[in-house]
């Protein structure tokens, strides 16, 4: 068992979920209520990581983070290290490829809040901030939690983008998924099997919790 790789994956998952939590809430709420003519374009762009091959996404991210790019050179001048092949670069990539996994469940949760509750909140004199805090977030909380779980679980298992952007640097960019690949390459099948089994259990648990949350939300609405 590659404990450092597991620990790195956990750190990456938690950090990705925590970064996407506020950004996802704001974007999902806007998408759920907006009638902007370009909304379908934004939605398509944000859902792109779902359909794009991970290596393609990884390639573009690698180019965007490389030392020759504006982002890469800015990061290097600020922190004295390259963005590509670092934990920070991995985190940026992880946030980007997880956008749809965080955003879509949150958007659906906000969309399922009946329109007359928004109207009622306004005629009750609630400001937009108070409406978000007291009405929308409590009603969308299961969708938000589901989004966080999906994001974290997806990060734990992501391989293609991680390999392209982070490579395989122990303690810096080697996640548990990369480690499994590494173990198989070096014929350490038992270690690969243990880690694979662990990811399998984790993925299954995630799906079960997510399904339970979605169903509870639906039954709460119709109750």
């Amino acid at each position: 068992m590659d404990w450092p790789a597991l620990w790195l994956s956990v750190r990456l998952s938690v950090a990705t979920a925590l970064i996407l939590l506020p950004l996802g809430i704001l974007a999902a709420r806007w998408l759920a209520t907006s009638s902007h003519p370009l909304k379908p374009v934004f939605e398509a762009m944000l859902a792109l990581p779902l359909v794009l091959p991970p290596t393609v996404l990884g390639f573009y991210l690698l180019v965007a983070m490389g030392g020759d790019s504006a982002l890469g050179s800015l990061f290097q001048s600020l922190f004295g290290q390259t963005l590509a092949f670092s934990f920070s670069g991995l985190l940026v990539a992880s946030v980007i490829f997880n956008i749809p996994f965080a955003l879509i469940p949150m958007q659906r949760a906000f969309e399922s809040i009946p329109a007359d509750l928004h109207d009622a909140a306004r005629t009750c004199g609630l400001s937009r901030w108070r409406t978000l805090w007291r009405i929308e977030l409590p009603l969308a909380r299961r969708g938000i939690l589901s989004a966080m779980i999906m994001t974290a679980a997806h990060t734990m298992g992501e391989f293609g983008v991680v390999l392209m952007v982070g490579g395989n640097i122990a303690g810096e960019t080697r996640t548990v998924a990369i480690s499994i690949y590494d173990k198989v390459q070096s014929f350490e099948m038992q270690a690969a099997g243990t880690m694979s089994a662990m990811l399998l259990v984790l993925s299954m648990s995630t799906l079960l919790v997510s399904t339970w949350l979605t169903r509870s939300q639906a039954s709460q609405r119709h109750g």
Partner: peptide, 20 residues
């Protein structure tokens, strides 16, 4: 004047009570 600042009380057809 935005809705939240108009001194209006409104009752909706399907109640629109906050379910939580």
């Amino acid at each position: 004047v935005p809705a939240e600042r108009r001194p209006v009380g409104m009752v909706f057809q399907h109640y629109a009570l906050f379910p939580h």
